[in-house]
């Protein structure tokens, strides 16, 4: 089970955090601080896994963003790397060449996409097509609502 996922920039700025275990805010901040420092200090060729406290950390850098996941001792490290990759692919497909700014300005979308991929720290849907379909139908629903709202505003319905 994944315990949490953090996205942070090369400057150490947190861009997204998703916790699948309940921790007090203070502890979350402490964990985040420690991990960001540890990972930013590592060199590019180093291994993507590290033992950390009771869990394992799997991380990977994409352009200016670090994706970092904590998993349990028995979980599969290599496949966790691919969960990260699948998420990046989804963001990329949705935003079209995703960049850090997309995630900053549309953090809520980034969350919605993640929720379609992982639930409660477990992989829900591994098919890229199916996740994108789910997000698309969310967007469609919103657009309908927006159109309906606009029509109401100008008194057409």
């Amino acid at each position: 089970m994944m315990l949490f996922m953090l996205l942070f920039s090369r400057q150490g700025k947190l861009r997204l955090q998703k916790w699948y275990v309940a921790h007090p805010d203070k502890l979350k901040k402490k964990i985040t601080r420690e991990l960001v420092t540890t990972i930013l200090a590592r060199k590019p060729k180093m291994c993507s896994f590290l033992e950390w406290k009771e869990c394992k950390i799997v991380y990977k850098r994409y352009a200016s963003l670090y994706f970092c996941c904590a998993i349990e001792q028995n979980d599969n490290e290599l496949l966790t790397l691919e969960i990260i990759h699948r998420y990046v692919e989804l963001l990329d497909k949705y935003f079209g060449s995703v960049c850090e700014l997309d995630i900053i300005f549309n953090f809520e979308k980034a969350y919605f996409i993640l929720d379609e991929l992982l639930i409660g720290g477990e992989m829900q849907e591994t098919s890229k097509k199916n996740v994108l379909k789910a997000i698309a139908s969310q967007d469609l629903l919103q657009e309908d609502e927006a159109v309906e709202g606009a029509l109401t505003d100008i008194g057409l319905i």
Partner: peptide, 21 residues
């Protein structure tokens, strides 16, 4: 940055830009 589908929130985007600036 690609335009985002769904309905954007202009006020939010302005606020985020302010913070970034």
């Amino acid at each position: 940055m690609a335009p985002v589908r769904g309905d954007g929130m202009r006020g939010l985007a302005v606020f985020i830009s302010d913070i970034r600036n």
